[in-house]
């Protein structure tokens, strides 16, 4: 159980997130949905202690920041430089960094974990490719493979579907379901309200605070959607901070 209590994030003068209280049950695929600027990425960064935030985050009763080995984070694909001199296998091996430990070199279990992670996302044949040679969808699969290699129970993915092809989207959701059935939990920031939302078990509707959270059909009510997206011209940017 992931318990978030009174989480808030201040950005300059504005509150990017406020009064976030959540209890996320394990074995679910949770979609984090909301308009641009609603604080979706900010929420997972705050939960993982990547940015300064107030409030508390606990996993099974203990502070999350003390058990980061139980979580894996998939940043937005654009957060890194894909011209970096590394192969696909190098990037996936990064996920083993903490398992290997300081001053040690990767061993057999690490190479096995990398191999099976790549198999799972269907990227085995690209293991020795330089990451810059891949398409956007392939890069996203490599990022997921890195998270898989971490063998964490809780996965946080920031906009994994931006700029990826249909095939990759289907592959990613299939893997999400397998992972859930294996007992893992996935929190996925989704950039818009497309058909993709049907794949989630639970929806967290966000607009700088929690508008609604729960099973998909309970959350997608007209009132909730109006509260999250109301007053916005279509899918246009909402860039101010909520009060």
């Amino acid at each position: 159980m992931l318990t978030i209590a009174n989480l808030f994030v201040r950005y300059r003068q504005n509150l990017a997130l406020t009064q976030v209280d959540l209890a996320v049950a394990p074995r679910r695929i949770v979609g984090i949905i909301g308009p641009n600027g609603a604080g979706k990425s900010t929420l997972i960064k705050a939960v993982l202690d990547l940015i300064p935030a107030g409030g508390t985050v606990a996993l099974d009763g203990r502070p999350l920041r003390q058990q980061l080995h139980r979580v894996a984070y998939v940043p937005q694909r654009t957060a890194v430089d894909w011209d970096y001199p590394a192969t696909v296998a190098d990037v996936v091996m990064m996920g083993r960094c903490r398992h290997i430990g300081w001053l040690r070199r990767p061993g057999r279990p690490d190479r096995e974990a990398v191999k099976s992670a790549l198999e799972r996302v269907g990227m085995t044949e690209y293991a020795d490719c330089q990451i810059g040679e891949l398409s956007g969808g392939q890069q996203q699969r490599v990022f997921l493979a890195r998270a898989l290699a971490q063998q964490a129970d809780w996965l946080f993915l920031d906009e994994p579907f931006v700029g990826v092809d249909q095939t990759t989207e289907a592959v990613l959701f299939a893997i999400f379901r397998q992972l859930r059935d294996e007992g893992k939990t996935l929190l996925v920031v989704n950039h818009d309200l497309g058909e993709a939302v049907d794949h989630y078990d639970d929806i967290l509707l966000l607009r700088n605070r929690v508008v609604a959270f729960g099973p998909r059909k309970d959350v997608f009510t007209e009132a909730n959607l109006a509260a999250a997206y109301g007053g916005l011209p279509g899918r246009f940017v909402y860039s101010g901070g909520g009060r």
Binding site: K45, L48, D49, L50, L68, H69, V71, A72, Y73, V74, P75, A79, V80, D81, Y84, A86, D90, V91, M93, M94, G95, C97, R98, I100, W102, L103, R105, P106, R146, Q150, F156
Partner: peptide, 22 residues
């Protein structure tokens, strides 16, 4: 040589490295 894999992770993806607990 001693910190190679950590420096590699950090220099490729600082945010990912931080989330992994480095």
């Amino acid at each position: 040589l001693l910190l190679f894999k950590e420096l590699l992770f950090h220099s490729f993806d600082p945010l990912g490295a931080k989330a992994a607990g480095l």
